[in-house]
């Protein structure tokens, strides 16, 4: 028995969240139209909350009883023909429970199609794993595609890849911007966002990566299988909290063989200045739904008291990234304190 978790979701939704983030890509849901409608509706509802959201190209082959009985491969082939005719940069075929249950060989159908690179993501929810499994399967599939693409010119600068951004997160772009700012302290920038707001050709930069920055540690098994040079360093998570943000700069510096002291000092000063803007909160008693280390550290730095009788303040999940994320959080706290 399992109580449904509001924080989880279907494998198909996870896969779709990745595939729909390829800017010139087309996503083909190989399954019943209802499956496609439901998850596309979820995706669009979420994207509409994000500033500057782009509506992704989507299709479904609308499997019905006939395809369940006789197999859905012909329907997939017809839909792929139509998809190719729309001239996308790439096509993602996302399977569904029905397609997996009847054993359609999506890979074999995709192999017969020329002209557009195709990734096939097994996304049948009954296979287990929920949203994260779909996300990871899609990243894996795009990793395999990246290895087949010609590498674009990355210039002389080290290529830093952000891996597995949570595309349904309201603050996904704010997090990426913050990472860009932090990397800028070391005179670097984000080379490739794998996979968010990236055209298909841009994914070809992944195999050239000099450093991977994973959105969260749970993506480590995915990173292990990405087509990158052996020994490519990685940071297993976006930085959350004051000291972790400084540690992130040190980790990046160490990974790329450069001194990070000046960057850390500058960021520490930036953090101090940012906290000073919230000095009026000092002495407040707050109550938290959870007390992860980074929150306790933040409360200490601002001289806030964590107390069961304090004023309840939100602790978002996923946690805010970098110093900018903390500043946004403190602005929310200020509204209730």
């Amino acid at each position: 028995m399992l109580t449904p978790r509001h924080s989880d979701g279907c494998t198909l939704a996870g896969a779709l969240s990745v595939a729909a983030a390829v800017t010139d890509g087309l996503t083909l849901v190989h399954g019943p139209a209802g499956c496609a409608h439901h998850h596309v509706s979820l995706l669009l509802t979420t994207l509409l909350d994000q500033p500057g959201a782009r509506l992704p190209a989507l299709l479904t082959d609308d499997l019905g009883e006939e395809e369940v009985i006789f197999g859905g491969e012909e329907a997939l082939a017809r839909a792929l023909d139509e998809a190719v005719g729309r001239e996308p940069g790439s096509i993602a075929v996302l399977s569904t429970c029905v397609a997996e249950a009847i054993g359609d060989d999506c890979e074999a159908v995709a192999e017969r199609v020329d002209g557009v690179p195709i990734v096939v993501v097994p996304a049948g929810g009954f296979l287990g794993g929920g949203f994260l499994a779909g996300e990871q399967a899609a990243l894996q599939a795009y990793g395999a595609l990246a290895a087949r693409l010609p590498a674009p010119d990355g210039g002389e600068e080290p290529v830093i890849a952000l891996v597995g951004e949570k595309n349904l997160e309201f603050e996904a772009d704010a997090h990426a911007k913050e990472l860009g700012r932090l990397l800028g302290r070391l005179d670097h920038q984000v080379g490739v966002r794998f996979v968010r707001d990236t055209p298909t050709a841009g994914l070809g930069l992944l195999p050239c990566a000099d450093l991977l920055v994973l959105r969260e540690p749970a993506l480590a098994p995915v990173a292990d299988r990405l087509p990158i040079r052996p020994g490519t360093p990685r940071v297993d998570g976006f930085p959350v909290g004051l000291s972790t943000t400084l540690a992130f700069l040190r980790a990046v510096g160490a990974a790329l063989g450069q001194d990070s002291d000046a960057a850390c000092e500058a960021e520490a000063a930036h953090q101090e200045a940012a906290l000073a803007r919230f000095a009026d909160l000092a002495g407040s008693r707050i109550r938290l739904p959870a007390t992860p280390e980074w929150v306790c550290e933040l409360a200490d730095a601002l001289e806030l008291t964590i107390h069961p009788a304090g004023i309840p303040v939100p602790v978002p999940e996923p946690a805010p990234v970098g110093t900018a994320g903390l500043v946004r959080l403190l602005a929310r706290w200020r509204r209730v304190l």
């Binding site: 009883e65 009985i69 006789f70 197999g71 859905g72 249950a101 009847i102 359609d104």
Partner: peptide
């Protein structure tokens, strides 16, 4: 009737 061997779901075919 039903699907060719190795594809689809013959059991669902019986139901239909």
């Amino acid at each position: 009737g039903g699907p060719e061997p190795g594809i689809g779901c013959a059991g669902r075919g019986i139901i239909a």
